[in-house]
């Protein structure tokens, strides 16, 4: 059997201890995108963006979580580079097998999925990290509901998308 998912999962569990102990916060990712989106829009459209009620709650500035997401990019890059897994890929193999090798199609689909995800993560107040791991390990009621809905909706959508009928 392959122990890798368990070792990596345990690593994430230990990391969550450190986040609570040293930083007094749970691991989470989606707020970083809200802040980054606000920072980009502010740079393009000016300070009026900051008047939005949502950005009064989540100020568009670099915080711990923005650094965490930047760190994920760096950590995954270093690991992929060291293990020889780094590769520039436009269309993942499973997508290509089902929908063909078109790069514009894959980018359009990824963009649409990303928009839904960005809206949904902020609507639900968290993502697969903030609710799915950090919230559930705290035994938060809202997070257990969220993770069940994330995967139910995700499985149904994937089955529809790939034309799999149970």
């Amino acid at each position: 059997m392959d122990w890798t998912p368990y070792i990596a999962g345990a690593g994430i569990g230990v990391l969550s201890w450190l986040a609570f102990l040293l930083s007094d916060r749970p691991l989470g990712c989606s707020t970083a995108y809200a802040r980054a989106s606000g920072m980009i829009e502010r740079a393009v459209r000016g300070k009026a963006v900051l008047d939005r009620a949502y950005y009064k709650q989540f100020a568009p500035q670099v915080d711990w979580e923005v650094m965490l997401v930047l760190g994920i990019v760096l950590g995954a890059f270093a690991t992929a580079f060291l293990t020889g897994e780094f590769a520039l890929v436009w269309v993942p193999p499973t997508f290509e097998a089902a929908f063909g090798p078109s790069v514009p199609l894959r980018i359009a689909v990824a963009l649409a999925g990303g928009v839904l995800m960005g809206i949904g993560a902020r609507w639900a107040g968290g993502c697969t990290s903030g609710h799915g791991i950090s919230g559930t390990l705290q035994m938060a009621l809202s997070s257990w509901v969220a993770v069940v809905v994330f995967f139910t909706s995700g499985i149904l959508s994937a089955f529809l998308l790939y034309g799999v009928w149970p």
């Binding site: 990019v73 995954a76 890929v89 993942p92 689909v109 839904l116 995800m117 697969t128």
Partner: peptide, 29 residues
């Protein structure tokens, strides 16, 4: 929100944390 997130999860094929990791590993999509 979770239902919208789940649809995005399936269409994109990454979540907000793993998409950052995917960028690091070279996934241009």
């Amino acid at each position: 929100g979770g239902a919208i997130f789940g649809a995005g999860f399936a269409v994109l094929g990454y979540c907000p944390g793993t998409v950052a990791g995917a960028v690091g590993s070279g996934a241009l999509d």
